[in-house]
Amino acid sequence: MTESNLCGAEAAIVRDALECRDPLPGTAGFAGQLDDSLVRDVLGRVPLFVDAGATTTDGTAGHDPAWAFEPAALDDPRLVPAGAVAPVDDPLAGQRSHWTLPSPDPEPDQDAAIDTLANAIRTAGDAVGGGRRDVAVAFSGGVDSALVAELLDAPLYVVGFPDSHDVEAARTAAEAMGRDLTVVELKPEDLERAAPEVARATGRTNAMDVQIALPLYLVGERVAADGFDALAVGQGADELFGGYEKVVRLDHRVDAETVRGAVREQIEGLSRQLPRDVLTIRSTGLEPVAPFLHDAVLEAALRLPDPLLADDDERKRGFRRVATRYLPAEVATRDKKAVQYGSLVARELDRLARQAGYKRRIDDHVTKYVESLLEDADARSD
């Protein structure tokens, strides 16, 4: 084993976390091979895949490689669950859960909880930024990416079609913050070109995942062309702090019966979403930087009292109170649309699918369109 087989954290830190079963050892996530085991952090921030055909259940060696950080490197990739440990010689059948998300009691003092969260966010910004000057921010004009921009003091890039909500929101937010903004304006042909790249990188062709990943890919492509080597994002804030309407409505989209329980559901669901985002950004040649997914922030978020989560009047209340220390009130309090809608990527991809003959009456017509684009791209490359 070499430490280069581990991504995201030093081997000594992960060894200590293994021994102590510490789910939050102060990292921004990790995965890979440590000695004779494969490991993946409790939140699943670093993707890790094993090949279902690489070994047999009795431990008999099969073909190599047995694991990889991206699905395209394996014949039959399976995502290792968040918090899992598995033997390298039998990574599929030998998986076991080693770390679980903590369930600490909420901090009863709201002011103390806000101070703790503010300190954690600053710690995370320092840790993931590390004084680097080659980071740019995927900026939508919402509070999440605006706070990342202030923490890292990095250039701002927004992506979207010319009449999109995100482009206008980013312009007004950047003006309020006194910051310059680079606008990456999209055309329909950008989606046609990029959709196969996203599908190939993530191993996913379903409409929702591709619609979410496309803006990340296209802004990352521009950021990389401009000479940066990392892309900072606000990922995790909605999940950690109660940013979704469904956690207040407690509708059919959640199983929980309380706002606190619904927020926890969203946090636990991050392990399914993050591989898509990380793999998309990496496919552009950039490394993702996500301050709000640092262990320090996660730990503080889990201790927020219920009144600082969400209700009918305000979502992400505690997070916004921290944001007001850095941002103009009009930016710290504004809501935004999901990126696939705010950028108009979802609308335009649907339109392209229909133009190509995949009508809405066809089940999952956008997914079928993306699959056709990938097949055509693969055929051209053969």
Rank of each mutant, 00 (worst) to 15 (best):
L218M: 07
T205W: 08
E70D: 14
R360N: 13
D363M: 10
R380G: 02
A194F: 05
A195H: 02
G83T: 10
A118V: 05
G53T: 14
V137S: 05
T284R: 06
L286T: 07
V137R: 09
A199Y: 10
L43A: 03
D75R: 15
K316I: 02
P196E: 14
A332M: 13
D126S: 14
V322A: 12
K368A: 12
D209K: 04
P104T: 14
V159D: 00
R15T: 06
G243F: 07
R361V: 13
A174R: 03
E3S: 15
L274W: 00
E197G: 09
A338K: 00
E330C: 13
S381L: 15
D376F: 08
P288D: 05
D311W: 11
T205R: 04
G242A: 12
L218R: 03
A31R: 02
P104M: 14
A52W: 00
V137Q: 03
D180T: 13
L214Q: 02
Q355P: 01
A290S: 15
D144H: 09
V158E: 01
E19Y: 05
C20P: 02
I267K: 05
T202V: 04
P305T: 10
H165Q: 08
I212R: 06
A11P: 07
S164I: 04
P65S: 01
C20M: 14
G269H: 12
D111E: 15
H365G: 10
E185M: 08
P102N: 11
R253K: 11
H63W: 12
F49D: 11
R320A: 05
L279T: 00
D313K: 15
A232F: 12
L156R: 04
A136N: 13
S4Y: 12
